[in-house]
Nucleic acid binder design. Structure first.
Lengths: 208, 208
DNA sequence: AGTTACGGAATGAACATTCATTCAATCACT
DNA sequence: AGTGATTGAATGAATGTTCATTCCGTAACT
């Protein structure tokens, strides 16, 4: 029996319970909103006592931050891992779109939670930093895309990102609220429309 | 003294106080969110007592619906009044964009409030109907635009609207959250980018 | 004088958080 | 190995706070 054999299971168990609570909280927050969900139902959803939840998180606010960071981290990983943002191309755009739709489809609660407006007043500096960790690489990618002539440079990068991100969110929000149903073709067409909005149409290929 | 002389002033006064409360509520809701704002601060902001507020609105929920309907109505009026949606054109699109930006700039609280997610569970049938009163004309306009070859018809109308609306909201949301500052040129460029996303690029002019 | 509008303290429900207690696991000693 | 002591995770009833709503005394108007 090694040292690891004794310590790791205990650590895992703690980590598991913390994660369990975070995931339960995400589910309940996504359904009822942040202010709309009391703490006890979160504990119930996680299958633990209320007191236990407070052993793992100092306050509801701390829990909200933990949920936010976890969701943001998962989005960032799914979106950017193993991707070379420094060489933008149409196919990179398509890949990013595909990963975004996969995230929205497979983790709808996380996607919805991240788009909620009302957690912004709760976020601590660490959570805001996490936010930047996703935006900055995307911003760099757009800058390079504009320099190489792939993307139009009439919009500043932050504006192009906000426009694209808003369009994407708007489409899924419409679906969630029942204004719309989306099949794969719809998403492909929406993707192409977004590309038209940000691509450089004088494009003769890349340039120095 | 006519009948009107007696009744109208009273009606006006009531209407004024009701409106006063609605406008105050809008301001506070926009700043602190729906669940985040207790009723007493709303009354204070309106300069009335809590009891008075409850003379004009049965409950917080009723007040939320009143605020929603009022904001939606103002948006609809500013957006659609005196406009012939049955003959879409690029200049009609530009007009709509200009009116939308004017609304977002001049009534930022109303614009923000309407985009909050968490009021959707509170809305009564009348409020939902108000929602439709804006969406249906826009949908018709897109259908006609597609038929006449002005807009591309690869996206279904609802999808095109969701995409456009999302992009617009995303841009202003980014500004509100401090990711961005928008001058008039930025907005014009964003407008043109949105147009690229939905316009028909094979366009040889209108057709029968 | 009577009626209606107003205000804000009072009320009770719902909430976030705490804490005394239970309980299972580990440890110390034989 | 068997027994008792110790630890700390888990719990949920109890606590104090905040909230939506009510109610009654006062003011304004007719």
């Amino acid at each position: 029996m090694t040292l690891a054999d004794r310590t790791v299971p205990a650590d895992n168990k703690e980590a598991r319970k913390g994660d369990q609570i975070i995931q339960a909280a995400l589910r309940v927050f996504a359904e009822h909103g942040l202010h709309g969900t009391p703490v006890p139902p979160i504990a119930a959803e996680a299958g633990v006592g209320v007191g236990t939840l407070y052993r793992y998180f100092d306050s509801k606010e701390a829990l909200i931050n933990a949920v936010f960071r976890d969701s943001k981290r998962r989005l960032k990983e799914r979106l950017l891992s193993d991707l070379d943002l420094l060489h933008p191309s149409r196919s990179l755009f398509d890949t990013l779109w595909a990963r975004l739709t996969a995230f929205a489809r497979e983790e709808p609660d996380a996607f919805h939670f991240l788009e909620m407006q009302d957690h912004h007043s709760y976020l601590d500096p660490e959570s805001r930093h996490q936010e930047q960790a996703l935006l900055i690489p995307l911003g760099m990618m757009v800058v390079i895309g504009q320099r190489t002539g792939l993307l139009n440079d009439i919009m500043k990068p932050d504006l192009a990102i906000a426009l694209f991100w808003g369009a994407f969110v708007g489409v899924f929000k419409a679906e969630r609220l029942g204004y719309l149903t989306l099949d794969d073709d719809d998403l492909t067409r929406a993707r192409d429309a977004c590309w038209l909005a940000i691509a450089n149409h004088n494009n003769k290929g890349t340039q120095s």
